[in-house]
């Protein structure tokens, strides 16, 4: 090997007071607050700003939160349609603009490979050199690792299976019917899109969270916000483990507000079945508990709406 040419010279770890991993909503917002307080910091991002929104979402996705809710510290939504729902290109532009105005140094294309606690903080290894910091903020997102049932490994080879992170649009799938496993926001949205593309769709669901898109003339998110539910902090929640397991609500954004609950799904011709629980030969097995989960979701929704009315 020829010294000095083919590899960068050894550099000592760069030091900073606070290091933030991830340049999405949370990482950028953190950067804003750190900069305002004059705390020396840097943001590390594996790809580009809003990386997951650019590369790990399906084409038709719109946020399920209305535009007025797209607010980052120091920047409220200022566009023409506060009650609309951002498409991915619009969301990426929103985050890009925010990142450009930020005083934080953002190191894009820098993948963190290891984090180690040290006496005075952390040592963070990346594919572009090491960092040292006193405090570390993990802002890598809550749902970046798909939960794939173990039985997916044993599916017959003629069944193609993929996670929501890899799905883009119906015409990228092989022809034929589709089983969507999971009926949180992503599951119901994908089942809806696939069914509209003309495929027979079966949706397997366990515990789920039913919400109407609009309630008493306003978006449900307005009510959740007004009731203070969105301001609840982790230490105010009775059972944090349970709160973290709560599925995302059966809501969809898009050009016009609409419901995407079990009634809407089955009215559109989607076959609803219980949780996927087994594979016997080439037959999938579904739990017989769909009625219980649907009744539970209705009871929870009833309690929520009663609280909102109060």
């Amino acid at each position: 090997m020829i010294a000095g040419r083919s590899r960068p010279p050894h550099r000592p770890a760069r030091a900073v007071t606070v290091l933030v991993i991830g340049a999405g909503h949370a990482g950028l917002a953190m950067g804003h607050h750190l900069a305002r307080r004059g705390i020396d910091h840097a943001i590390l991002e594996r790809g580009e700003v809003a990386h997951a929104w650019r590369h790990q979402r399906w084409d038709s996705l719109h946020l399920l939160t209305p535009n007025w809710e797209c607010r980052l510290p120091g920047q409220a939504y200022a566009g023409p349609d506060p009650d609309g729902y951002l498409s991915m290109p619009a969301l990426i532009a929103f985050l890009d603009g925010y990142a450009r105005r930020l005083a934080s140094p953002i190191h894009t294309g820098t993948r963190v490979t290891a984090v180690q606690a040290t006496d005075d903080g952390y040592r963070v290894e990346t594919d572009r050199g090491a960092w040292r910091c006193r405090a570390l903020v993990m802002a890598t997102g809550a749902c970046q690792v798909p939960v794939v049932p173990a039985l997916a490994e044993a599916l017959p080879p003629w069944i193609e299976s993929l996670s929501a992170l890899a799905y883009r649009r119906p015409d990228r799938l092989p022809p034929g019917g589709v089983l969507v496993v999971g009926a949180s926001a992503s599951g119901v949205q994908l089942a809806d899109e696939l069914q509209r593309s003309g495929r027979p769709v079966t949706l397997a669901m366990g515990e789920h969270l039913r919400l109407p898109r609009r309630y008493r003339g306003r978006d449900i998110e307005w009510w959740l916000d007004a009731a203070g539910l969105l301001d609840q902090r982790f230490h105010e929640v009775e059972d944090i483990q349970r709160a973290r397991r709560t599925p995302s609500p059966q809501l969809v954004g898009g050009p016009a507000p609409r419901d995407l609950d079990l009634n809407a799904l089955s009215a559109n011709g989607i076959r609803l079945v219980g949780r996927l629980v087994g594979l016997a030969g080439s037959r999938l097995q579904f739990a017989g508990s769909l009625a219980m989960h649907a009744a539970s979701a209705d009871l929870k929704l009833g309690r929520l709406l009663d609280n909102l009315d109060a």
Binding site: G274, V277, G278, A280, Q285, A287, G288, S289, M292, A295, S296, L299
Partner: peptide
């Protein structure tokens, strides 16, 4: 809600609804 919660924590309900 009582009836729903009892299903959620029932061994025999689980036995009948899952393989």
């Amino acid at each position: 809600a009582l009836v729903a919660q009892s299903q959620k924590r029932s061994a025999v309900y689980d036995l009948l609804t899952n393989p």
